[in-house]
Amino acid sequence: MSDDAPINVVGLNHWFGAGEARKQALFDIDLKVARGSLTVLMGPSGSGKTTVLTLMGCLRDLQDGSINLLGHELMGAGTALNEALRRRLGFIFQAHNLHGSLTAMQNVQMGLQVHRLDDPKAEQEAARHALSLLGLSDRLDYLPANLSGGQKQRVAVARALVGNPDIVFADEPTAALDKESGLNVVAMLRKLGQKRGTTTVMVTHDNRILELADRIVTLEDGRIVSDRMVNPSV
């Protein structure tokens, strides 16, 4: 692995709660992720997968240890750096979190407007293209309330990918999808890795997806218990 790894986690600890209720969720995590790779995080419920993901994705302040993300140290990072880094990431959450007042198109456009390109035509074109890749060409003007669970999740995927992120973080993105579209989404992420060098870190319980992974990291009780390269070509 080269030293320009987009993600480099060293000695990461994390606690939740305060006083008596304070509980350590992560213990001394070290993890270096290679550019363009697809890493899968596995482990039982409550093992700390989401916590690791949100810390790597600048969605939580670091408490102890270090994460170097795209060349920037996250420990003690200020609001401005956090925001700038977040704009280079794509998130696909367990809950789709689409904005209920915006159409599928508009939701995807939000993934672009954060870059302030000020080119509405190009934005709409890109949003339309992203949705068509996910098979939603005929649902552009639907509000989330009128979409099925799987369709909503695919809109969320389009929104995460439309801005050409350097890294995609996905937390059980395929949970709401049927077998075929779930595999499609992951295959898409893999292709992006090969074509554009997009790095993906994904939490999943889905065995079918493991076959597409380059690396499988398993957490238990806040500790990494296994770290396997399954696709040595990367």
């Binding site: 994705g57 969605l59 609001t79 925001e83 700038a84 880094l85 977040r86 704009r87 280079r88 990431l89 998130f91 959450f93 809950a95 979190n97 689409l98 904005h99 209920g100 939000m110 993934g111 954060v114």
Partner: peptide, 16 residues
């Protein structure tokens, strides 16, 4: 009512 949607925007890098 829109806190989780706003949080998503915040996660996408939208500033305050």
């Amino acid at each position: 009512d829109h806190l989780s949607e706003y949080a998503t925007f915040k996660a996408m890098g939208y500033p305050q």
